[in-house]
Simulated scan of single mutants.
Amino acid sequence: MSSDRYAIVREDLHRRYGQYFYARTIDELLDATIAEAEAKAKIDTFLPITVEREVSEILEERAEAKGRSGTARPEVLFVCERNAGRSQLASAITAHAVGDRVFVRSVGLNPVGGIDPQVLEVLQERGIATGHLYQKEIVPRTVHRANVVVLMGVDEVPGIPGDRIERWDIADPAGQPIEKVREIADDVERHVKELLVELGKADYAA
Protein backbone atom coordinates (compact mmCIF):
# COMPACT_ATOMS: atom_id res chain seq x y z
CA MET A 1 0.00 0.00 0.00
CA SER A 2 1.27 3.46 -0.83
CA SER A 3 1.97 6.28 1.57
CA ASP A 4 -0.37 9.23 2.13
CA ARG A 5 1.31 11.17 -0.67
CA TYR A 6 -1.11 9.36 -3.00
CA ALA A 7 -4.22 9.98 -0.87
CA ILE A 8 -5.37 12.91 -3.00
CA VAL A 9 -4.74 10.95 -6.20
CA ARG A 10 -6.86 8.13 -4.83
CA GLU A 11 -9.70 10.50 -3.96
CA ASP A 12 -9.57 12.14 -7.37
CA LEU A 13 -9.78 8.78 -9.14
CA HIS A 14 -12.73 7.65 -7.03
CA ARG A 15 -14.42 10.97 -7.67
CA ARG A 16 -14.07 10.73 -11.45
CA TYR A 17 -14.52 7.01 -12.00
CA GLY A 18 -16.47 5.73 -9.00
CA GLN A 19 -19.71 5.73 -10.98
CA TYR A 20 -18.18 3.34 -13.52
CA PHE A 21 -15.97 0.99 -11.49
CA TYR A 22 -15.98 -0.70 -8.11
CA ALA A 23 -13.79 1.06 -5.52
CA ARG A 24 -11.70 -2.08 -5.20
CA THR A 25 -11.00 -2.09 -8.94
CA ILE A 26 -9.73 1.49 -8.84
CA ASP A 27 -7.64 0.87 -5.71
CA GLU A 28 -6.04 -2.31 -7.05
CA LEU A 29 -5.10 -0.64 -10.33
CA LEU A 30 -3.72 2.40 -8.53
CA ASP A 31 -1.70 0.35 -6.03
CA ALA A 32 -0.20 -1.80 -8.79
CA THR A 33 0.71 1.28 -10.82
CA ILE A 34 2.29 2.94 -7.78
CA ALA A 35 4.36 -0.14 -6.99
CA GLU A 36 5.61 -0.40 -10.57
CA ALA A 37 6.38 3.32 -10.84
CA GLU A 38 8.24 3.47 -7.52
CA ALA A 39 10.30 0.42 -8.41
CA LYS A 40 11.48 2.08 -11.63
CA ALA A 41 11.78 5.73 -10.61
CA LYS A 42 15.15 7.30 -9.83
CA ILE A 43 13.51 10.62 -8.94
CA ASP A 44 10.09 10.33 -7.32
CA THR A 45 9.14 14.00 -6.90
CA PHE A 46 6.45 13.92 -9.60
CA LEU A 47 5.32 10.32 -9.21
CA PRO A 48 1.81 11.17 -7.93
CA ILE A 49 1.18 13.23 -11.08
CA THR A 50 2.49 10.61 -13.49
CA VAL A 51 0.73 7.77 -11.67
CA GLU A 52 -2.60 9.61 -11.74
CA ARG A 53 -2.22 10.29 -15.46
CA GLU A 54 -1.42 6.66 -16.24
CA VAL A 55 -4.27 5.22 -14.17
CA SER A 56 -6.71 7.78 -15.59
CA GLU A 57 -5.79 6.77 -19.16
CA ILE A 58 -6.36 3.09 -18.36
CA LEU A 59 -9.72 3.74 -16.71
CA GLU A 60 -10.82 6.01 -19.55
CA GLU A 61 -10.03 3.28 -22.08
CA ARG A 62 -11.88 0.65 -20.05
CA ALA A 63 -14.93 2.86 -19.64
CA GLU A 64 -15.07 3.68 -23.34
CA ALA A 65 -14.63 0.01 -24.28
CA LYS A 66 -17.69 -0.88 -22.22
CA GLY A 67 -19.67 2.05 -23.60
CA ARG A 68 -20.16 3.47 -20.15
CA SER A 69 -21.49 6.96 -19.75
CA GLY A 70 -23.73 8.78 -17.36
CA THR A 71 -24.45 11.90 -15.39
CA ALA A 72 -21.80 12.85 -12.88
CA ARG A 73 -22.64 12.07 -9.29
CA PRO A 74 -23.67 14.95 -7.06
CA GLU A 75 -20.86 16.08 -4.77
CA VAL A 76 -21.21 17.19 -1.17
CA LEU A 77 -18.43 18.75 0.89
CA PHE A 78 -18.76 18.90 4.68
CA VAL A 79 -16.69 21.52 6.48
CA CYS A 80 -16.02 22.16 10.15
CA GLU A 81 -13.17 23.71 12.10
CA ARG A 82 -11.01 20.66 12.85
CA ASN A 83 -12.47 17.91 10.66
CA ALA A 84 -12.60 15.89 13.86
CA GLY A 85 -16.29 15.58 14.71
CA ARG A 86 -19.26 17.02 12.86
CA SER A 87 -17.88 16.86 9.33
CA GLN A 88 -16.65 13.30 9.92
CA LEU A 89 -20.05 12.23 11.23
CA ALA A 90 -21.81 13.82 8.28
CA SER A 91 -19.54 12.39 5.62
CA ALA A 92 -19.50 8.89 7.10
CA ILE A 93 -23.28 8.77 7.59
CA THR A 94 -23.90 10.08 4.06
CA ALA A 95 -21.49 7.62 2.44
CA HIS A 96 -22.99 4.75 4.43
CA ALA A 97 -26.50 5.75 3.35
CA VAL A 98 -25.98 6.08 -0.40
CA GLY A 99 -22.66 4.41 -1.18
CA ASP A 100 -21.02 5.74 -4.32
CA ARG A 101 -24.18 7.43 -5.65
CA VAL A 102 -23.02 10.67 -4.01
CA PHE A 103 -19.40 11.76 -3.88
CA VAL A 104 -18.66 12.87 -0.33
CA ARG A 105 -15.78 14.84 1.12
CA SER A 106 -15.01 16.39 4.48
CA VAL A 107 -12.35 18.94 5.34
CA GLY A 108 -11.35 21.17 8.22
CA LEU A 109 -10.11 24.73 8.44
CA ASN A 110 -7.62 23.69 11.11
CA PRO A 111 -7.44 19.88 11.22
CA VAL A 112 -5.50 19.05 14.37
CA GLY A 113 -5.66 16.52 17.18
CA GLY A 114 -7.02 13.55 15.27
CA ILE A 115 -10.62 12.40 14.83
CA ASP A 116 -12.65 12.48 18.05
CA PRO A 117 -12.56 8.90 19.43
CA GLN A 118 -16.14 9.24 20.69
CA VAL A 119 -17.26 10.08 17.16
CA LEU A 120 -15.54 6.95 15.85
CA GLU A 121 -17.17 4.89 18.61
CA VAL A 122 -20.66 6.18 17.80
CA LEU A 123 -20.20 5.53 14.09
CA GLN A 124 -19.02 1.99 14.81
CA GLU A 125 -22.06 1.42 17.05
CA ARG A 126 -24.19 2.20 14.00
CA GLY A 127 -22.31 -0.25 11.82
CA ILE A 128 -20.66 2.53 9.84
CA ALA A 129 -17.10 1.93 8.63
CA THR A 130 -14.45 4.29 9.99
CA GLY A 131 -11.20 2.79 8.74
CA HIS A 132 -11.05 5.12 5.75
CA LEU A 133 -11.55 8.34 7.74
CA TYR A 134 -8.72 10.78 8.26
CA GLN A 135 -8.36 14.49 8.89
CA LYS A 136 -7.98 16.66 5.80
CA GLU A 137 -7.30 20.34 5.36
CA ILE A 138 -8.49 22.67 2.63
CA VAL A 139 -5.90 22.78 -0.13
CA PRO A 140 -6.52 23.41 -3.85
CA ARG A 141 -6.28 19.80 -4.99
CA THR A 142 -8.56 18.40 -2.30
CA VAL A 143 -11.44 20.77 -2.96
CA HIS A 144 -13.37 20.35 -6.19
CA ARG A 145 -16.45 22.37 -6.98
CA ALA A 146 -19.23 20.72 -5.01
CA ASN A 147 -22.95 20.80 -5.62
CA VAL A 148 -23.44 21.52 -1.93
CA VAL A 149 -20.98 22.81 0.67
CA VAL A 150 -22.21 22.25 4.22
CA LEU A 151 -20.67 24.41 6.95
CA MET A 152 -20.89 23.36 10.60
CA GLY A 153 -19.54 25.63 13.30
CA VAL A 154 -17.73 27.82 10.77
CA ASP A 155 -18.51 31.54 10.95
CA GLU A 156 -16.77 32.80 7.84
CA VAL A 157 -17.50 31.21 4.48
CA PRO A 158 -14.11 29.83 3.38
CA GLY A 159 -12.87 30.05 -0.19
CA ILE A 160 -14.49 26.79 -1.22
CA PRO A 161 -16.10 26.39 -4.65
CA GLY A 162 -19.70 25.26 -4.45
CA ASP A 163 -23.02 25.72 -6.22
CA ARG A 164 -24.81 26.07 -2.90
CA ILE A 165 -23.68 26.85 0.64
CA GLU A 166 -25.65 25.47 3.60
CA ARG A 167 -25.15 26.02 7.32
CA TRP A 168 -26.15 23.24 9.68
CA ASP A 169 -26.65 24.19 13.32
CA ILE A 170 -25.07 21.07 14.78
CA ALA A 171 -23.56 20.91 18.27
CA ASP A 172 -19.82 20.23 18.55
CA PRO A 173 -19.18 16.71 19.94
CA ALA A 174 -15.75 17.70 21.29
CA GLY A 175 -15.54 16.98 25.01
CA GLN A 176 -19.12 15.72 25.20
CA PRO A 177 -20.19 12.50 26.96
CA ILE A 178 -20.96 9.58 24.70
CA GLU A 179 -24.72 9.98 25.20
CA LYS A 180 -24.54 13.53 23.86
CA VAL A 181 -22.42 12.43 20.90
CA ARG A 182 -25.11 9.90 20.03
CA GLU A 183 -27.70 12.69 20.08
CA ILE A 184 -25.48 14.80 17.84
CA ALA A 185 -25.15 11.88 15.42
CA ASP A 186 -28.96 11.60 15.34
CA ASP A 187 -29.17 15.33 14.54
CA VAL A 188 -26.60 14.95 11.76
CA GLU A 189 -28.53 12.00 10.33
CA ARG A 190 -31.75 14.03 10.22
CA HIS A 191 -29.99 16.76 8.27
CA VAL A 192 -28.41 14.19 5.95
CA LYS A 193 -31.81 12.64 5.19
CA GLU A 194 -33.21 16.03 4.22
CA LEU A 195 -30.23 16.78 1.99
CA LEU A 196 -30.41 13.42 0.24
CA VAL A 197 -34.08 13.96 -0.53
CA GLU A 198 -33.17 17.31 -2.13
CA LEU A 199 -30.45 15.62 -4.17
CA GLY A 200 -32.88 13.03 -5.48
CA LYS A 201 -31.64 10.24 -3.22
CA ALA A 202 -34.95 9.85 -1.41
CA ASP A 203 -34.59 6.07 -1.16
CA TYR A 204 -32.32 6.64 1.83
CA ALA A 205 -32.94 3.88 4.35
CA ALA A 206 -31.96 4.41 7.97
Rank of each mutant, 00 (worst) to 15 (best):
V119K: 07
V76M: 05
A23Q: 06
R73H: 02
I26Y: 01
A171T: 02
E189K: 07
P158N: 07
A72D: 07
A202G: 09
E137V: 09
A185D: 00
T130A: 05
A63M: 10
H132F: 13
V51E: 01
E121W: 11
D100H: 08
E11N: 14
V79G: 00
E183R: 13
S69P: 00
R16V: 10
D31T: 12
Y134N: 02
R164F: 07
V150I: 09
S3M: 04
I8T: 13
A185G: 01
E28A: 04
A171E: 15
E194V: 14
D172S: 12
A174T: 11
A95Q: 12
I58C: 03
D44R: 15
E11K: 14
R53N: 15
I34S: 02
R16K: 13
Y17P: 05
G162S: 04
T33P: 01
I93E: 06
I128Y: 04
V149M: 12
T130C: 10
E61C: 04
L133P: 00
E179S: 15
A7V: 00
T50Y: 12
E60F: 08
A35C: 06
A146T: 04
P48Q: 02
P161A: 12
D186M: 13
S2R: 15
L59R: 07
E38I: 14
S2E: 13
E121N: 13
I160E: 08
A7M: 06
E52Q: 15
S87M: 07
R141K: 11
L123V: 07
E183V: 03
A97S: 15
D155C: 02
G113Q: 14
R145H: 10
V79N: 05
G162R: 01
T50E: 11
Y6T: 04
D27Y: 03
V102L: 06
M152D: 01
Y6C: 06
R24E: 08
H144Y: 10
T71Y: 03
H144V: 15
V55R: 08
L30H: 03
T25M: 05
G67T: 00
C80P: 00
D44E: 15
V122C: 13
R16Y: 04
V197L: 05
V9D: 01
I170N: 00
T130D: 07
H144S: 09
D187Q: 12
A23G: 08
P111E: 13
G108S: 11
I58L: 10
A41E: 11
L30G: 00
T25N: 07
E64Y: 01
L195K: 04
G85E: 02
R164N: 05
V104H: 09
A23W: 07
Y204W: 12
